[in-house]
Every structure is written in structure tokens, then in C-alpha cells.
């Protein structure tokens, strides 16, 4: 069900001036890969390439072993903010992937209500995005991304604009949802602790290349000691 994503010698950007160069990456089905790096290192570019929004200028990209030709419902994208369509209510935003998939109005109702409940937004369905807090909007984005039952979810610093408490709550929510769905997740962040908390592996991007790839000891286990990797990442990251 979940999707394998593979980059072989991937370059993206303008010919002669690539934003990403020669990236070798294999994201296993059901894995959570966190991508760490400073601003401008090409994190978002990698994510957009995986989403199919940016065509590779070199190398190749595979989704489930087949060449990736463009965006599709199997790879959902979650943005840092303002990803919701502001003229659609919360409910109509969440049902959007289902409507695109061709489900009838009556068939959409139950899954949308289910997802709104799972992200803790019961009773907010008829509100407009501008009437919600930043954290609530990200909950809606998460629900919308997952309502279409994608095989991979690509997240571009989804909690980067939230205050620390809301961010921690969203991380717990994401993990709870992922436990059940087990879809492949590529999660871009510039926060070392967030990368360690969520990921099976951490990829470090620097200057448009893949600088390092680390296995996280005891992924998502609150008891695991990751201080050594944390120290290493802090040096690599800067």
C-alpha cells in the first residue's frame, strides 16, 4: 500500500545551475524519512520533485519502481502554511481529494467526518480557514492530505510556523495518525529535535547535495538515547 520513492543521481533546477545535484535516495515503503538542512539547501525542491511538481533535469525519480511523471493523488503534499483553499470551508477542503477522486457527495460525508474527528476538529467543519488558528489550519491540512488515502505524504516544514506547544501536539497527532496509516512520509524540517523525534532515518541536505544519511536509534521510542546522533547532526547541520 505505501510507496517506495527512489532518486537516482537526481538533479533539479535550471540546466547548468541545479538546486539539487546527484541525490541518491531510497525511501522504503512505510518509512518516515526526515530531511534536515538550513534554508536554501534544496529541501523544498527535493519535496516538490518527489511530488512531481518539478521535473528532474538529470538522473531519475521512481515511485513504486516506475518513473515518476507528474503529480498524482498517491503523493500528497502538506505545506508550511496557507495551503488550504481559503474560500472553501474546513469540510470542503478536507473532502477535496475525495471530490477529485470522483466520490459522490453522500460518499464523502462519512470519511470527512471521520478525519475531522481524528484531527480533533469535530464541529469546525463549516468554518472558513481564516477563522481557525494556525495549529487548527495545519490539522485541516493533515486531514485533507490523508483523506485521499495517499501512499506517501510529503510534508514541507508543516509545523515550522507553530508555537512550541502546538508544534509538540501536532507531532504527537502526526505519529498517532501514521501508526494507523503506515504510509511513507518524507518530512522536511530545519529542527534537529523534530527530525530525530519523527524519523526512521535523517537525511541531511547541504548546498544542494545529500551530505549524510543517518539511521535513528530506536525510531519514535521515547526511551531511546539519541544524544550522540543529535550532537553529530548539530555539527553537520551548521
Amino acid at each position: 500500500m505505501s510507496l517506495r520513492l527512489t532518486a537516482r543521481g537526481l538533479s533539479v533546477g535550471h540546466p547548468g545551475r541545479p538546486v539539487l545535484r546527484d541525490v541518491e535516495l531510497d525511501v522504503a515503503p512505510g518509512e518516515v524519512l526526515t530531511v534536515l538542512g538550513p534554508s536554501g539547501c534544496g529541501k523544498s525542491t527535493l519535496l516538490r520533485a518527489l511530488a512531481g511538481l518539478l521535473p528532474p533535469t538529470g538522473g531519475e525519480l521512481l515511485a513504486g519502481g516506475r518513473p515518476l511523471t507528474g503529480p498524482g493523488a498517491d503523493r500528497a503534499l502538506v505545506f508550511q502554511e496557507d495551503g488550504l483553499l481559503p474560500w472553501r470551508t474546513v469540510r470542503r477542503n478536507v473532502e477535496l481529494p475525495l471530490a477529485i477522486a470522483g466520490l459522490k457527495r453522500a460518499e464523502r460525508r462519512a470519511p470527512v467526518a471521520d478525519w475531522l474527528g481524528r484531527v480533533g476538529l469535530d464541529g469546525h467543519g463549516e468554518r472558513l480557514p481564516r477563522e481557525l488558528s494556525g495549529g487548527q489550519r495545519q490539522r485541516v491540512q493533515l486531514a485533507r492530505a490523508l483523506a485521499g488515502a495517499p501512499r506517501a505524504v510529503l510534508m514541507d516544514e508543516p509545523f515550522g510556523a507553530l508555537d512550541p506547544q502546538t508544534r509538540a501536539a501536532m507531532q504527537r497527532l502526526l505519529l498517532a495518525v501514521w501508526e494507523k496509516e503506515r504510509c511513507t512520509v518524507v518530512f522536511v524540517t530545519h529542527d534537529v529535535d523534530e527530525a530525530l523525534l519523527l524519523g526512521d532515518r535523517v537525511a541531511v541536505l547541504a548546498g544542494g547535495t545529500l551530505a549524510a544519511l543517518h539511521e535513528v536509534p530506536g525510531p519514535r521510542d521515547p526511551a531511546a538515547d539519541r544524544s550522540a546522533l543529535r550532537a553529530l547532526l548539530l555539527t553537520q547541520y551548521t
Binding site: R48, G72, L84, L85, I100, R144
Partner: peptide, 25 residues
Amino acid sequence: PRWEEAVRTMGGGTGRVLFGVVLPG
């Protein structure tokens, strides 16, 4: 552009982008 990207990564085609994103936006 992100509204369009969101719809395209949900599998939306040209018509959906035009009438569901570009015109209302």
C-alpha cells in the same frame, strides 16, 4: 502557486485547477 500545487498533488487536472483554484482565487 501553492493552492494549485495542493490541488495537483491531490490528482486534480487542468479543469479542476482552472475552475477550482485559478478562477475562485
